[in-house]
Amino acid sequence: MVKDKIYDLEERTFKFAMACRKFVQSLKYSIGNIEDGKQLVRSSGSVGANYIEANEKLGDKDFYFRLKIARKEAKESGYWLRLLQDANPENEITIEELINESMELRKILSSIINKAK
């Protein structure tokens, strides 16, 4: 992950998805890593995609809906990372950074949702 905090949320979610992809590529071959890695790639990419969709809202309901999906996907990414953490203890530092970023993104999205109401 990038050490400096990125305040452009579209860029930050992009960096998160890219970091998750690079992490998945570094994992040892196993059925669990492949399947959990696929899910992580999907959910981490969906965080940013839904955030971008929210910014191109069709109305307030669409805005909230997309932000809530982005938040859900950030939480789901944390879940897949935790599973991968358990199966790959040798990658603990990298996984911890990604888990922390997924939690921060979730909190940021929650804050946006609450302030927009």
Rank of each mutant, 00 (worst) to 15 (best):
V2D: 11
V2Y: 03
K3A: 14
K3Y: 05
D4H: 02
D4Q: 11
K5L: 13
K5E: 14
I6L: 10
I6N: 09
I6Q: 14
Y7F: 15
D8L: 06
T13K: 03
F14Q: 12
K15Y: 04
F16M: 03
F16H: 02
F16L: 08
A17W: 03
A19F: 07
K22C: 05
K22S: 10
K22R: 12
Q25Y: 09
L27Y: 07
L27H: 10
K28R: 13
Y29S: 10
S30N: 04
I31H: 06
G32H: 09
G32N: 13
N33K: 04
E35A: 09
Q39M: 07
L40A: 06
L40H: 09
V41S: 07
V41D: 06
R42H: 05
S43D: 11
S43P: 01
G45Y: 06
G45H: 03
S46D: 07
V47P: 03
V47A: 06
G48F: 05
A49L: 04
N50C: 01
I52Y: 08
I52R: 14
E53P: 00
A54D: 03
A54F: 01
N55V: 02
K57M: 14
L58K: 14
L58I: 08
F63H: 09
Y64C: 03
Y64N: 01
R66D: 06
K68F: 09
I69T: 12
A70L: 06
A70V: 02
R71I: 00
R71V: 00
K72L: 08
K72D: 08
A74W: 07
A74Q: 09
E76L: 05
G78Q: 11
W80S: 05
L81N: 09
L81R: 08
R82C: 00
Q85V: 00
D86Y: 13
D86A: 11
A87H: 06
N88Y: 05
P89S: 09
E90R: 10
E90C: 00
E90A: 14
N91G: 00
E92Q: 14
I93L: 11
I93R: 05
T94A: 15
E96G: 00
E97L: 15
L98W: 12
L98P: 08
N100W: 01
E101N: 03
E101K: 11
S102W: 11
S102P: 10
R106H: 09
R106C: 05
L109G: 04
S110E: 15
S111I: 00
S111N: 15
I112V: 15
N114Y: 14
N114L: 15
A116K: 14
K117D: 08
K117C: 02
